[in-house]
Amino acid sequence: MVRGIRFWGRYTLETLAGGLIVALALLVLSGVGAGAGSLPLILAGLPYYMAMGSALSILMVCYSTHLLYIPLVLSMGSTRREAFAGFLLFRVGAVVLPLLLSLVLWLLLPGQAAQVGLSQLPAVALPLLFAATLGSLMGLAYRRLKMLGIVLIMLLAAAVGAGTSLVFLGEVTADTFSALFSAVDAALVPSLAVWAVLAAADLLTLHFSLRRREVRL
């Protein structure tokens, strides 16, 4: 139990760090795009950037968990139950920690933008939840159907590239995120329902996949 927490806890923190780095990069890019006069607005967008950066980081780590971390821990004597629980623990931590950071940031920041952000916290959680589930499903897809996994990764890379370009050009600001998450907020319940179905499919697939998985490094 302790060794699982040590291992998966470490990767949770590394994933959070990855998300923060992406968030800071987006912050700098949006600053370049928007100009110094919009500084308070840019800062108010930091939690959104953190959520998006964390979502990207979570998605990539969940994807690579199937290729690396799961076979690795199984090869070193972990049971499949422990690997399943550890991966779940990682995903809960990877979702909750950035949300907590966002909450703290918005509580500390003054102004209307922060208040709006606080009210959108459930909506901000959504990309993190989807990232944790979709990343795992993509990893499972890659193991079973390699070409499908590659295509999904390429589409993701294209989306990330497009999004980053928009941030750099100043087309995407904190206002954009606020509007985006307002739209998500309006569709929160159906979105959560979709996520729940995907999450159930992911957990079931992971359980059955792990049960008979042969470790290959």
């Binding site: 060794r3 291992f7 690579s64 290729l67 971390y69 821990v73 070193m76 972990s78």
Partner: peptide, 17 residues
């Protein structure tokens, strides 16, 4: 998946498990 893992990280993981 192991390709980019460093020796010290691999040994550290072994020491944990």
């Amino acid at each position: 998946g192991l390709a980019s893992m460093k020796v010290k990280d691999y040994l550290r993981l072994a020491s944990v498990y």
